[in-house]
Design a protein around this nucleic acid. Structure first.
Lengths: 231, 231
DNA sequence: AGGTGATTGTGATATATATCAATTTATACA
DNA sequence: TGTATAAATTGATATATATCACAATCACCT
């Protein structure tokens, strides 16, 4: 973490959050004035669950893992944070605490922006408020889907969901680097790492997905979607 | 469902949503003008998953069940809607669709309020917008907790969670009517109805909770919380 | 290049949970 | 009040998933 700002200004930032488009030049400058940058190495914790939500987080580059540390000591991986995303848990507006931890997967260049600014802008700028609501609603919707999927699908369906998540939401490609270990895939799909290995082997045997510990290639997406849907 | 309004006005309504306190007299009158009432009998569907979110729902009296109809045909019960709650899924601000169904448990007197008003008020009234965000965040937070609990706890922990939910959030008492069937308790905890029966019997044998099909009495709350926490 | 530790992979086994079939109990209703 | 229907319960069994123990492979370090 160095204190030097590498990014000149939020104005014209190509990794910006969509909702910043609703801000005036002045408001954007206010954001910019309350922004500080940091660089993280792979594995470093960027946000710790339970800590005060003094800042919202944006990635300028790289990828990060969002995860809940459960009461039993087991982690639950929510997903991957990418540039363009507002990284801010629902706790911010409820109890001012981060509801999950975030740690860098690759080298991450990040911007932290004081959370008070967000509160202020919500009150002052109606379009921004609406965008904020859309963002939170979207995340809530995802959580709801996830909840149902995890509790009603069997292992193969859940692994299929995870692989499709990377393909559709993260890498936008049928072939991608597997940034998670088998253990982490298990933390994402709520299963033991050994079971992840076995299901991936099944997928490979049936020609649906090729995968090794560092790469995934979806060979038959239609069938993978089928597996996801039928549970 | 009769077309006659039994409630005179939102002003001074004692079942009102907390966030309505942030509205001016005029705004409240606007809400009131876009409100219509309906009465539902037990079992009747009040909101159907997938239908357009043309209205938000409030209960003036009674209780309703919120549930997601999963792709496999199984239901997933989210919880119970009560007077004072805004009943509106996260889909409203995302794809304008209800993300879950709602059906009456007891006789329900309900108010429907046009959703467009909410959108308008979010833009025009900053405090209302903030209250809206708090509400959605709260629900998102609950969904997140639920997700982790369902995927990391074993059956007894999940049943304990459900019993504590009724006790702490719904009835605010250690003794309450069980409004759900064993099947519905299963839909809430993601387990088979037979297993619900067995776990409840275990609780009874160990003196933690007495229950029959219509009543629940928590005898040892401390121990029940322990069961919930240890999974 | 070799050693060290972590990750992955595999088979055997244990456990948790679901399903099935049958019986009893409660509930509705004509 | 009896009868039809649904719900709760129970035991036996099947299935899904987790755990354990171990071998193989990979990654990293000096």
């Amino acid at each position: 973490m160095s204190g030097i700002n590498l990014i000149n200004s939020c104005e014209g930032c190509t990794h910006g959050w969509k909702n910043f488009e609703h801000l005036t030049k002045n408001e954007l400058q206010m954001i910019n004035a309350n922004r500080y940058e940091a660089t993280f190495k792979p594995g470093e914790v960027m946000i710790k669950q339970g800590s005060p939500t003094s800042n919202a987080l944006f990635l300028a580059s790289g990828m990060a893992k969002m995860y809940i540390e459960g009461s039993t000591g087991k982690n639950f991986i929510i997903g991957i944070a990418l540039p363009g995303m507002l990284v801010l848990g629902p706790g911010a507006f409820v109890n001012s605490r981060h509801t999950y931890s975030v740690s860098a997967i690759s080298t991450v260049q990040a911007c932290f922006i004081g959370f008070n600014i967000f509160k202020q802008l919500v009150r002052e700028n109606g379009e921004f408020a609406e965008g904020m609501i859309e963002d939170i609603s979207n995340k809530s919707l995802q959580a709801q889907h996830r909840m149902v999927n995890l509790s009603q699908k069997r292992m193969s369906g859940r692994v299929a969901d995870a692989l499709l998540y990377f393909s559709d939401e993260v890498f936008r490609s049928d072939e991608y680097d597997m940034v998670f270990s088998r253990q982490e895939l298990g933390d994402m799909t709520s299963m033991a790492k050994e079971c992840v290995v076995r299901i991936l082997k099944e997928f490979e045997d049936s020609g649906v997905v090729y995968s090794d510990s560092s790469k995934v290639r979806i060979l038959n997406k239609e069938k993978l979607v089928q597996i996801s849907e039928k549970g």
